[in-house]
Design a protein around this nucleic acid. Structure first.
Lengths: 151, 151
DNA sequence: TAGCTATTTCAGTCATGTTTGAAATCACTA
DNA sequence: TAGTGATTTCAAACATGACTGAAATAGCTA
């Protein structure tokens, strides 16, 4: 396989990862491509320019996306003495963080459910409906809290 | 509290549920409002017209949304002999289904990871990165499969 | 069957959020 | 300090997909 074909295959894979990110986590396509590329690139640390070139996005878009990704700690910005360019690499536990945060954000429903129960007065069919929803949402959270992933 | 204030409070709650649906599950706002209303309405079964009125959406929008919600089995369409209007009620396990499906859809990453490992040749830093992602994604799934919610 | 009401379809409008390109800024080097 | 290359900011273009309204259809009743 030529290096060009290899590159093609890499990019197709990056695209699959991006599609997954878009569908599952609601990330913008370019953000997904960046994550995909940072997963499979070699070396692991890449400059914004390199990434922009490879995923065919503008430098400007890279700037905002890298800021976002580093802000939420999915990507780490690496600076080297005597080198003016910044390099980025995906955090080892990036995906774990994504999942963990998704789970945590589910807890927001707790408050919603509480107010719902207050509205329904704590009994009747309406109450049951709300409780069922709340139970489902807390089920996963408790599960995850009790069985943390060890790596 | 006047009935009008009560209605206001109901609608505010519905709006909170809708916002949650939008953020967490990526549903359109109106779809979220429908689910929110169906959770707290009385009686539990409501016609498309009733729902449209209460959440201030068009009948047309209701049509497509109800079709969608019944297609994915979150809402059940109920017909009554001698009554031309269709009624809808939220499924008891609607939220459980939503969560379950989200988890299942994560398995799509399995295939992506497999191809990634094929590309990287199964060793090196790139392989580790992909494996880490895959492990995180399957962790929750296995957990959920082993500890089903009993109601 | 005729008449009425509710539902559905479809095409057009609208809003939202993403991406881009140009210009400004910054950091380093010589 | 001037020059070079990279980064950042910002406004505007763009694409996507949701919502609406009008017209067509379907289902019930008399």
């Amino acid at each position: 396989m030529s290096t060009e074909e290899q590159q093609d295959r890499l990019l197709r894979w990056v695209e699959r990862v991006a599609a997954f990110c878009v569908e599952e986590w609601g990330l913008p396509p370019i953000t997904g491509r960046i994550l995909g590329w940072l997963m499979i690139c070699d070396p692991a640390e890449q400059s914004a320019g390199q990434i922009a070139d490879v995923i065919q996005a503008s430098r400007a878009s890279l700037t905002s996306n890298m800021r976002f990704l580093t802000a939420i700690d999915l990507v780490k910005k690496v600076r080297r003495p005597g080198d003016r360019v910044s390099y980025y690499r995906i955090e080892d536990d990036a995906w774990q963080k994504v999942i963990q945060r998704k789970l945590e954000s589910l807890s927001a429903f707790g408050d919603i459910a509480d107010e719902g129960l207050d509205i329904t007065g704590g009994e009747g069919h309406r109450t049951e409906r709300i409780k069922a929803a709340h139970d489902s949402l807390t089920w996963l959270q408790n599960l995850a809290a009790r069985h943390p992933l060890r790596r």
